[in-house]
């Protein structure tokens, strides 16, 4: 029989009183008093019935190892680690959570990440099996670049994206070697290649732009009407680009690459984009088609493979690569 909502509340209080034994003596009177403090008028008989129910095995009870100590006239758990307020984790659950914590530590070095990590550690603390996070080495390891400049603004920028607050900041362009004051209506923060970017509508450019956090100085919130983003554009930025700096404002387009046999093997294992289609030739080389918005990062990637990879289409992109020097595609 399922436990009623009221009975569940009383059980939680009983559990709370017993586990707080270091502060208050967990007597029947204490349980009744706490129930009354929480607006539950209850008799000792009802509490006695609740305790009996809690002792029953799941699913009818909680399997609570409650014992009444006549000497002390108080209730206690014979297993001092027991609680019904905690989440019961199997060793497998605890292991998965412990590994996830490693990922969180790597990827979310923000206030939000700290809160999430703290919450997960609390969940882990209820585990039946102790997980010593300090003694273990991670069996899953991601790349952990040193904290970059501008990362300290992450929490502020995330907050502005979430609430919808325009930002004023100073941006330094590595390429132009000039500073510029920017008013940005930020929409999303995106990581690419271990670098962080904020994307939004720039009043200063009258268009959608991304800015590397490492090039931002002194961001401040502005009391100004927020210009909402168009979900289609934001999703296109997130999903239709390899990288963040587009070479065109057009819709996603077919980009055809020619890969030699070695490069084909790598790109088959690690696709450039979800849209990637590989047509293999008899020799093992291939024609690779992507549907995306061409970016500077895509060109950098193509160039990183040397003669192993080249662009076949669109023609304007082929011409662009041919006519520009290597460092002109640097972010």
């Amino acid at each position: 029989m399922p436990i009623s909502k009221n009975a569940m509340r009383r059980c939680m209080i009983i559990d709370q009183v017993i586990t707080e034994r270091h502060y208050y003596k967990p007597t029947m009177q204490r349980i009744v008093d706490v129930c009354r403090q929480q607006g539950i008028d209850v008799s000792p008989e009802t509490i006695q019935k609740d305790i009996s129910m809690m002792k029953k095995a799941r699913p009818n009870g909680f399997g609570a190892p409650i014992k009444f100590d006549f000497q002390q006239q108080e209730y206690l758990y014979t297993d001092t680690n027991f609680t019904i307020n905690g989440v019961k984790l199997t060793p497998e659950d605890a292991s998965v959570l412990a590994e996830s914590l490693v990922l969180i530590k790597c990827m979310l070095r923000t206030e939000l990440g700290d809160k999430l990590r703290h919450a997960m550690e609390k969940v882990l603390s209820t585990s039946l099996e102790e997980v010593d996070l300090n003694e273990r080495y991670p069996i899953l390891k991601t790349m952990e670049p040193p904290q970059s400049r501008g990362y300290e603004f992450m929490d502020l920028i995330l907050h502005c994206c979430k609430v919808g607050i325009p930002l004023s900041f100073i941006h330094y362009s590595y390429k132009n070697e000039r500073f510029k004051s920017i008013v940005l209506h930020p929409y999303v923060v995106r990581e690419f290649d271990n670098r962080w970017y904020v994307y939004g509508f720039s009043e200063s450019h009258d268009g959608l732009r991304s800015f590397g956090l490492d090039r931002i100085y002194e961001p401040i919130k502005l009391d100004r009407t927020f210009r909402k983003g168009v979900p289609k554009h934001i999703l296109s930025f997130l999903n239709n680009m390899y990288g963040v700096f587009s070479l065109t404002n057009e819709e996603p387009m077919p980009v055809v690459l020619r890969a030699d046999r070695l490069t084909t093997k790598f790109l088959s294992a690690y696709p450039i984009h979800d849209s990637q289609v590989v047509e293999k030739y008899d020799s093992g080389s291939s024609r690779i088609t992507l549907i995306l918005i061409p970016t500077m990062e895509l060109i950098q990637l193509v160039r990183s493979y040397g003669h192993g990879l080249r662009v076949l289409e669109p023609t304007w992109l082929v011409e662009l690569i041919r006519n520009k020097k290597n460092n002109e595609f640097r972010r």
Binding site: S168, I170, Y172, E177, R178, F179, S181, Y217, E218, I220
Partner: peptide, 20 residues
């Protein structure tokens, strides 16, 4: 030297600069 931003309230005036 670039003067980029000026902030003013009743306590202070702040000027932000960039230098290349």
């Amino acid at each position: 030297l670039q003067l980029l931003r000026v902030m003013l309230n009743e306590r202070t005036t702040r000027l932000d600069f960039g230098y290349q």
